[in-house]
Design a protein around this nucleic acid. Structure first.
Lengths: 136, 136
DNA sequence: AAGTTGATGCAATTGAGTTGCAAAGTTGTT
DNA sequence: AACAACTTTGCAACTCAATTGCATCAACTT
């Protein structure tokens, strides 16, 4: 397990410090995307700023991606193996207004959009709001 | 012109106060979606909170819609005539990373998404980032 | 004119995100 | 082992948008 964690960090050329192992471990357990605040609460003692910078590093190295689900706090979730976070690889996110959880709909790619002429595409954020299967 | 403004307010059953007429007037002039801060600067003297509440009212009454474009400040834009802000009516938004403007792509409806079973849909936010035609 | 309701303006608070800086830890070199 | 060079961590403090409380003001009702 620890092997696995270190492998993932190494694969993205992130130095495997204790903190980073811990954060990655917790992230890997989540079924939904989590905010910095939620993560913070999952540790006994955790410095907000270290967490913040850890997440930034993870995101830069494309180990995780962030989702702005419109709730005011950004959520983070693990990327899939070998993800490059390119527009074609992105998936839809779902925010449940009942349980307030944000889920990666990994199997639902973001549909392509025909932009007006001379518009270039870099990135897409698509968040669907509604009620998830568990809350109906 | 003033007639027009009052008609729009009345049509959505919003009491046409001076402030609201003014804000609606300025909103109608915009080519892109604007933040509260940007709006504030367009007035000589404007109280942030009044503006805030005016926008809230407008949004509740579906005179405007808000866009969370991921920049950290919410943008507002007029809805089209007779818009109910239902999922089928929503359009894609475009954030230009060059000019930092957020545009309503009114002619591009949000593509439909096949959600997993038992997920219900209430709303969709779709923001495409890239470079707009003016900035290329 | 008094009373009720809604709108406005100021002050102050919240809450997420961010920066600065010094201490602690890591790595590589002699 | 000792040193320098670099990275990571932790605390304090700050920024900035959004929001709330409360008192005042305007408009409409009886």
């Amino acid at each position: 397990m620890n092997e696995n964690i270190n492998n993932k960090l190494n694969a993205k050329s992130i130095k495997p410090t204790a903190m980073r192992q811990l954060v990655l471990h917790v992230l890997a357990e989540q079924k939904s995307a989590v905010s910095m605040q939620e993560l913070e609460q999952k540790f006994e003692k955790a410095d907000k700023v270290t967490l913040y910078r850890t997440l930034k590093t993870f995101e830069e190295k494309k180990l995780i991606h962030s989702i702005d689900d419109g709730t005011g706090s950004i959520k983070y979730a693990l990327c899939r193996e070998s993800c490059q976070c390119r527009p074609e690889e992105l998936h839809v996110h779902f925010y449940c207004t009942e349980c307030k959880q944000t889920y990666c709909l990994n199997d639902i790619p973001i549909p392509s959009v025909n932009l007006p002429v001379h518009f270039t595409l870099e990135n897409i954020n698509m968040v669907v709001k509604g009620i998830c299967a568990n809350c109906i």
